[in-house]
Design a protein around this nucleic acid. Structure first.
Length: 293
DNA sequence: ACTCTTACAAACCAGGACAA
DNA sequence: TTGTCCTGGTTTGTAAGAGT
């Protein structure tokens, strides 16, 4: 007969090197542990441990068995977590990943409106960079994530549409010129440049990628659009950000649309786990029902 | 000799399976 | 639903082996 206690005990013995301590750790008596291991060895028909006075060691068969035992116990713990996460307390919970910049811009109004339409849905926000968000979505660590220009096959629901705009210091020679009709991105990339990668490092779907152009003189590469704007405001260079990322408090910058507009979409992408969650569907339905700007 | 650790046996208990 | 049987685990007591 084998059960999880046997495997936990075996793992504990290899970690403590001592049957008595291992027994204490898994909550059985020394005698019970000794008998349990003997029973395990008898059932498997192979010796798993070499008992010496100072230390109990694994045989080569034991080494092979313990690898499977650890997997088994880990899988069982994962199943338990799954049950806990799917329990009544978490049925209406959505873990939503987002970059700090997007959290600032899009998430507060989204959550405010969601609270009115779906007061029972509880959103837990997780801030991370774009790599974190991609990894969390892939590994089902979150239910959904906000992604810039999500792939069409990702099941994303578009939360917001915007377009890229140039931000230039007020005193910049280009900013002083006639920019009726927008600014040509080719002219922009010859200027000292602040590159903002926020949310765009994964699929490179930023304005520069869309235009297949590279700035000639990169003065800084930052993640946060607000940081890029602050650097531009202080004369470090020009930058490109989505129009919705430009806050009201910007005063020393001239914000100019591109002469050839490059669109930018923000979508909520559900993870595999999230796509099976009622709460995530409620969130996505709410976004679908909301008029996208 | 003493201590520590492990192994073993016997009695007992708890829980599950099953039949009535 | 209840009683019986079986299985697995615990406790208690004891013995053996090895280190100090």
């Amino acid at each position: 007969m084998m059960n999880l206690t046997h495997w936990r005990l075996l793992i504990a013995i290899t970690e403590t090197g001592n049957i008595s301590k291992a027994a204490e750790r898994v909550g059985i008596t020394q005698s019970g542990a000794s008998q349990a291991i003997s029973s395990l060895e008898e059932t498997l028909g192979v010796q798993l441990l070499v008992r010496t006075r100072g230390r109990v060691l694994l045989t080569s068969a034991g080494e092979r068995v313990i690898r499977h035992a650890k997997t088994m116990v880990a899988e069982f713990e994962a199943i338990k977590r799954l049950g806990k996460e799917a329990g009544p307390a978490n049925m209406n919970r959505v873990q939503l990943a987002s970059s700090p910049t997007v959290c600032t811009i899009l998430v507060p109004p989204l959550l405010g409106a969601l609270k009115r339409t779906h007061p029972d849905v509880r959103v837990v926000l997780l801030e991370g960079n774009e790599n974190d968000i991609a990894s969390w979505l892939k590994d089902d660590k979150v239910d959904a994530g906000i992604v810039v220009n999500p792939p069409h096959d990702s099941g994303a629901v578009i939360l917001c549409r915007s377009s890229w705009v140039a931000a230039l210091p007020q005193s910049h020679p280009v900013a002083l010129s006639d920019l009726t009709g927008g600014i040509d991105i080719c002219a922009l990339i010859r200027e000292p440049f602040v590159v903002a990668t926020s949310c765009c490092a994964i699929n490179r779907e930023n304005a520069l990628h869309s235009s297949t152009l590279s700035p000639e003189d990169v003065r800084a590469t930052v993640r946060d659009w607000h940081t890029a704007l602050a650097l531009a405001e202080n004369g470090l260079g020009v930058t490109l950000v989505p129009a919705i990322a430009v806050p009201n408090w910007i005063s020393n910058l001239r914000i100019v649309p591109l002469s050839s507009p490059i669109p930018c979409e923000f979508g909520i992408v559900p993870s595999a786990m999230g796509s099976r969650s009622c709460a995530v569907h409620a969130l996505l339905d709410h976004v679908r029902a909301t008029k996208v700007e």
